[in-house]
């Protein structure tokens, strides 16, 4: 245990050993595989028709929203060029399936079915359709461990989407809550504010939604306000997650190598 904490080579051995765990997770996942199969194969005609209608309506809506996006993106790039700041690059993503969750309620970790073979790396951001979920902490050959943003040991730099106010969102061990530490009592932050990742930690890309502020308690006796927020991502309900390959990270590393 001591070695696991202190030596890097030991952690690498540990990551290699996780290949032993793969069959266990595969077997433990069978019940949910069966229910998933049942859900997609045993359905009434009505539900399929209803789903189809709903999905095509959703597609039209999303397409309409995307129409504007192209021109907005171009405009954004032009404005950033005017400001001489670096352009925001597109991130590529990889879809992975959740095959296990940590059995210990104190550890908010999930296991996904992608690993070293797919080019995952430690520190890689993980998102779902609605927001940021967490980051990779262990990469095995065929599976990886993800630390969720609600884990008590996790914190990430965020900013308020409305006014750019920076803060740090920390997990407290509850799936529906993160808290912002050390927010001055006079800060302009309101219930309903969207928190997005600020990218300051150099780990998460900029601009992914993280949480929505649900509670701001300003106690005159305390020097800091208590700000609670609920994560945007469906941390305990998603089945599929997206692994983000941030191009900026590669650039930084290239820069380090050449410089």
């Amino acid at each position: 245990m001591y070695a696991g904490q202190r030596f890097e080579w030991f952690q690498q051995v540990n990551a290699k050993l996780s290949i032993v765990a793969t069959p266990f997770y595969w077997v433990a996942d069978i019940p949910s595989k069966i229910s998933g199969w049942g859900e997609s194969n045993i359905r009434s005609r009505e539900t399929i028709i209803k789903d189809n209608e709903r999905l095509s309506a959703e597609t039209i809506l999303l397409k309409a929203q995307v129409q504007k996006l192209a021109s907005l993106e171009a405009e954004n790039v032009r404005l950033r060029e005017l400001l001489n700041s670096s352009a925001i690059l597109d991130d590529s993503v990889l879809v992975a399936e959740i095959i296990g969750v940590s059995p210990d309620p104190l550890h908010h970790q999930i296991i996904v079915n992608k690993g070293e073979k797919d080019g995952l790396y430690v520190g890689q951001p993980v998102i779902d359709a609605l927001g940021l979920m967490g980051q990779i902490i262990d990469v095995g050959a065929y599976q990886s461990r993800v630390l969720l943003i609600t884990d008590p040991s996790h914190a990430l730099p965020v900013q308020v989407n409305r006014n750019g106010l920076r803060s740090v969102a920390e997990g407290v061990g509850l799936y529906h809550q993160v808290i912002l530490q050390h927010v001055a009592a006079t800060t302009d932050i309101k219930i309903g504010d969207l928190l997005v990742s600020s990218g300051l930690g150099q780990r998460f890309p900029v601009g992914y939604p993280v949480a929505t502020v649900t509670e701001v308690i300003i106690d005159p006796g305390q020097s800091f306000a208590t700000v609670k927020a609920s994560p945007s991502a469906l941390l305990n309900r998603s089945r599929h997650v997206l692994l983000v390959f941030s191009h900026r990270r590669e650039e930084i590393e290239d820069g380090r190598q050449s410089g």
Partner: peptide, 10 residues
């Protein structure tokens, strides 16, 4: 320990 992901030896 390996399967659950706890510190090796716990």
């Amino acid at each position: 320990d390996i399967v659950v992901g706890t510190p090796l030896g716990q």
